[in-house]
Simulated assay, not measured.
Amino acid sequence: MILLQLKQYIRQHHEVSLEDIQNHFDLSEEAVHGLMAPLIRQGHIQMIESPQCSSGRCSTGCTSRGGNERYLWRDKCFISLPIGVQVL
């Protein structure tokens, strides 16, 4: 049930931070990571890490408190394919 709620929450907001999810669902960071793993594998949710502000305040005015992970909703599936690449 919570996986569906998480998926709907991210789809509704299009982009949310780790902290947003923690606060909205009252979850620990470890719980969020565990719940997000299968959703990311499905392909509609992508996790990105934004660069952390060294001063604690970035140019967009946000304050960074360690949770620099963001989760994005993708209308088209975003699935990594394990394709071997040889560099010459």
Rank of each mutant, 00 (worst) to 15 (best):
E49Q: 10
D26H: 11
G67W: 02
Q52Y: 14
L72I: 07
K7R: 13
A31M: 09
N68Q: 10
I45D: 00
Q5F: 12
S28W: 12
L72P: 04
Q86F: 12
R70W: 00
G61Y: 11
M36G: 03
D26E: 13
P38I: 07
D75Q: 06
I40D: 01
I48F: 10
C62W: 08
G61T: 09
E19Y: 04
H24F: 14
L35E: 05
E19K: 00
I40S: 03
L72V: 07
S50K: 11
S80A: 10
A37T: 11
P51S: 12
K76F: 10
W73G: 03
R11W: 08
R41S: 02
C53M: 13
F78Q: 00
G67V: 07
E29R: 11
D26Y: 14
T63G: 09
D20V: 00
N23K: 09
T60R: 13
D26P: 07
S80G: 05
S17H: 01
L27V: 06
I83M: 13
I40P: 01
S64L: 15
E15W: 05
I79M: 04
Q86N: 15
H13D: 00
L35Y: 10
R70Y: 05
I79R: 01
V85E: 13
R57T: 12
S54K: 15
H24C: 14
Y9A: 06
L81I: 04
A37P: 05
E49L: 05
S64I: 15
Q8C: 09
P82C: 07
C53I: 09
K76S: 10
I40F: 05
N23P: 06
L18D: 02
S50I: 08
P51K: 07
N68A: 05
G34A: 10
Q52R: 13
N23E: 06
Q86S: 09
Q86V: 15
S50G: 08
E19Q: 11
